[in-house]
């Protein structure tokens, strides 16, 4: 009786096992790369806005404090976006006729809000509170990066859970003195591990890694 399989079937079988393993591994690797990549995370991608608002100009050049516009960052979960009135408090005087600011003036005239595109967009099943972080010595630039160098706003971190948890497991590596929270150019000192440990004790910072801390 003739053999059912040809001799070459042996090597074919071996090759196909290796090929399948490689394909599976490659798929997982590709999925991981895509997920961590710019296409999904939007890290370093500036979003189009109705007005090309420049943090570089307002924070870097003019030195306006974060809280001038993000008024509720110290008291509320939401940092707050300025009402049109806040923009107009200056721009009724300076650049009052600039073409680029027409949407702001239109909003003020008509009473219709400006619609900004959210840059830092957490999924809706995640709870985040700005005020607790700010009050416990986590600086703006720790998460938002050098916003004073961004002509258009983009995010510098993925806001993935592993990124959040990295700090929640060991807050000492990122905490800074409270009076430096809004210092956008803050540099961590060489003795950060020492200083961080001290501030964690002083500010009574807990390492909150329970699921319900954020997924409530």
């Amino acid at each position: 009786m003739a053999q059912i399989f040809h001799r070459s079937a042996n090597s074919l079988a071996k090759v196909s096992i290796v090929a399948v393993l490689l394909l599976l591994g490659g798929t997982v690797w590709a999925a991981y790369k895509i997920n961590a990549g710019t296409f999904i995370t939007d890290v370093n991608v500036a979003r189009a806005q109705p007005v090309p608002f420049s943090h570089k100009h307002h924070v870097g050049d003019d030195g306006i404090d974060c809280r001038y516009c993000h008024t509720s960052v110290e008291t509320s979960s939401f940092a707050g976006l300025p009402p049109t009135e806040t923009c107009m408090s200056c721009h009724s005087q300076i650049w009052a006729n600039a073409e680029v600011l027409e949407p702001v003036r239109a909003s003020f005239r008509t009473g219709k809000s400006l619609e900004w595109t959210r840059v830092h967009d957490l999924p809706d099943f995640v709870y985040f509170n700005h005020s607790i972080h700010v009050n416990k010595g986590i600086g703006c630039s720790t998460c938002h990066g050098r916003i004073d160098r961004m002509p258009l706003t983009y995010k510098v971190n993925t806001l993935y859970m592993q990124w959040c948890v990295e700090c929640h497991r060991n807050p000492a590596q990122y905490v800074r003195p409270r009076d430096q929270v809004f210092n956008i150019a803050y540099q961590y000192p060489d003795n950060q591990s020492e200083l961080g440990e001290r501030l964690v004790r002083e500010y009574k910072i807990q390492s909150l890694t329970d699921c319900v801390t954020c997924h409530r």
Binding site: T71, S72, T75, S76, S77, F78, G80, L81, P82, P83, T84, E85, S107, F108, G111, K112, S113, L114, E115, W116, T117, R118, D121
Partner: peptide
């Protein structure tokens, strides 16, 4: 998906978004 933030034109007194 793209999400919008729509602030007030004139913020009412005492209203703090998130509180």
């Amino acid at each position: 998906p793209k999400e919008l933030i729509v602030p007030y034109v004139r913020q009412p007194e005492e209203v703090i978004p998130g509180k």
